[in-house]
Design a binder for these strands. Sequence first.
DNA 1: GTCAAGATTTTTGTATACATGACGGGCATT
DNA 2: AATGCCCGTCATGTATACAAAAATCTTGAC
Lengths: 219, 219
Amino acid sequence: MEQRRADTIAEALEERIFDGTYSDGDRLDEVRLAEQFGVSRTPFREALQRLARSGLVELVPRRGAFVRQPGPVELIEMFEAMAEIEAVCGRLAAMRISDEALAALQDANVKCEAAVGCQNPDGYYTENERFHRIIYEQSGNSYLTTEANELHRRLKPFRRQQLRLRGRMAQSMAEHKAILDALEAGDPVAAAETLRGHVAIQGEKFHSLMATLKRVTEV
Amino acid sequence: MEQRRADTIAEALEERIFDGTYSDGDRLDEVRLAEQFGVSRTPFREALQRLARSGLVELVPRRGAFVRQPGPVELIEMFEAMAEIEAVCGRLAAMRISDEALAALQDANVKCEAAVGCQNPDGYYTENERFHRIIYEQSGNSYLTTEANELHRRLKPFRRQQLRLRGRMAQSMAEHKAILDALEAGDPVAAAETLRGHVAIQGEKFHSLMATLKRVTEV
DNA sequence: GTCAAGATTTTTGTATACATGACGGGCATT
DNA sequence: AATGCCCGTCATGTATACAAAAATCTTGAC
């Protein structure tokens, strides 16, 4: 699959939005940025439109493109949607998961535990992501899988913060175990419930999220 | 909100794809169609990219834009996803729905029943859509609402066929009643279950869907 | 008659030029 | 001094021109 220039530009812009180079409300000047990327306005505008579709920028007619970071309400809604969609994937996966996938989940979990032991948040994060993506995949529904992956990607920057919470990794491991048990038992209801609880933002996680939000938006 | 030309073109193309003017695999010639719409290639390409993001068109680099109708597998997956997302919306709505929304749902249902009495499928269809959109809205989650509306829109052409099934409208009414009861009772589980069952493609509905699919793709 | 390689043509991707609508500053009026 | 209007400047939206890649056609050899 050949890569258009607009694709690479979109990725670069996305990266800059995620890492905070551009923050909420910033206008993305077409001529200046196109020049900076070494392309003309045409492919750059293509990239902007793609980002607009993912919701990262807002395209106001005749006024330009503006960075659109999710606010507190939007973020909470996205986390809730993530929890519900993961629950759905888990429900379906409980009825459809393959033995290979179950083994892969177990493998991811083992490596997660190892990462916890080594105080290695990055390793934990990588394997945790694999764990979840396997469940999306095993829903056996590519539409849901795509949606789940997309939401997962957008929440990535905020999710990462959650792991910093004291004792969060250990608790998360216990929840993974419960999820795995439900999937092995082929219990759709239990799989859905445990996954929803695992992903949902509640209690201390909520305050933590709000705190990081403040830090991001106030800079 | 000002409308770009690319927007109107995208809508027109979408319409033509839905109504079968263009069918699966057709190439959308940039110069010919842009001329036909009376615009240059630039806004027309914008429209193509938008359609590509909705999944109606596939943009193959260096080869062009091709109409991408969902195949049987994809359609079944989309209907399943719709059923699951509606179930989620129902679950949340059962906990959050307002009295006004409940009244609106009842109103939609009454008008549905009237339409059934008058043998008026169009009227039924309109009110049925309103019924479902209210439930999406009352999930209290705008992300889910957007996703649900989008899926609903894409499945519209296929859903319409389902209503032609003998006795389908009457059965559907009974299901609406059960959904309404669950929402009134504030029972999340019942709301989710009844909605999932209502939307899911199963039994005769499945064969009917396959039949319409054949008719569409073989023309 | 078939297949292959080169030339031609068509078409996509990108750059640039042009036109129209938006924002801001300055001036006049109250 | 404040407000409203007008004009200049600039950015966006669109058209057109150019370049590169793919598809097609032609021609020649086996």
